[in-house]
């Protein structure tokens, strides 16, 4: 029960910080976000595809929106939203692939929303480019390799849940020397991305797509909340190591006070 209480308290504090920082961002207190080169590169991908007369491939991975991979899939969908909006302005339809039908429905919805101002035929064409390949990772990778091998694609963005199959797709993209941006949260997949992609989104960076690409206040607010909670967790871990090593139990009071002071200082600095 203690662990459950702790988890609930953590969740409530996180939600409170997220709401507070979102309100601050909405009222004009915007932080300076560190540069992530992969997001910079994404902004030029659609233009490059238009110039080459080809299209862009966006992979949302093998994850779903109904299990523990939901956050990864939503991160991929945020990237798709941005690229679809850009594509809608230029008239190309990105080729979107995924391995799960629940993600397919959200992708179709996102593409339809991005093309809301476009003629009906264009909306239809863009929606038809959303393709469910296959639920098995190997079969999905084979389908994506086939897409990347065709002459239709100028660049590829693979952001979402991926396993070992990433390398099959990543190496195909590398062989064709096409623009290739990869991102995943699974530490076992990251070496494959690092080895094959030109620009990378490693670990939690994939969740920052909404803040960097679309400048959504709640996403920026959640980034600051995440950073604050990371400091809290790091302080507690360091304090725990120190206390376990020295056996000075009174140090917990110091750690608690330090944590409170840290959160207060971050909150106060955002109020300035």
């Amino acid at each position: 029960m203690n662990q459950l209480l702790l988890a609930l308290v953590f969740l409530v504090v996180f939600a409170g910080l997220l709401t507070f920082f979102t309100v601050r961002v909405r009222t004009g207190s915007r932080p300076t976000l560190r540069r992530i080169r992969a997001f910079d590169a994404m902004e030029g991908l659609v233009g490059r595809a238009v110039e080459s007369g080809r299209t862009l491939h966006v992979s949302l991975g093998v994850g779903s929106v109904a299990n523990q991979t939901t956050a990864d899939s939503l991160a991929g969908l945020a990237v798709l939203d941005f690229l679809s909006e850009q594509a809608a302005e230029t008239g190309i339809s990105p080729l979107v692939s995924m391995a799960d039908p629940t993600v397919m429905l959200l992708a179709q919805n996102g593409v339809r929303t991005a093309y809301a101002q476009a003629p009906a035929e264009e909306v239809e064409e863009a929606t038809q480019q959303v393709r469910l390949i296959a639920p098995q990772p190997a079969a999905y990778a084979a389908g994506v390799m086939n897409i990347l091998d065709s002459d239709e694609v100028d660049g590829t963005v693979l952001v979402g849940k991926f396993g070992d199959e990433y390398l099959l797709m990543g190496e195909t993209a590398a062989r064709h020397r096409m623009a290739h941006i990869g991102g995943a949260s699974d530490p076992n997949t990251l070496p494959f991305i690092y080895a094959s992609a030109q620009e990378t989104l490693l670990g939690e960076e994939i969740y920052a797509a909404g803040a960097y690409l679309k400048d959504i206040p709640v996403h920026i607010g959640s980034l600051i909340a995440q950073d604050t909670m990371r400091w809290v967790v790091a302080l507690v871990i360091l304090g725990g190591v120190l206390i376990a090593t020295t056996q000075w139990w009174w140090l917990w009071i110091v750690v608690a006070l330090l944590t409170l002071a840290l959160v207060a200082s971050i909150v106060m600095s955002s109020l300035r």
Partner: peptide, 14 residues
């Protein structure tokens, strides 16, 4: 990385 991913997942869920 896992710590960051966990916080990112919680933020997305929230």
């Amino acid at each position: 990385i896992l710590l960051g991913v966990a916080l990112g997942t919680i933020a997305t869920g929230l």
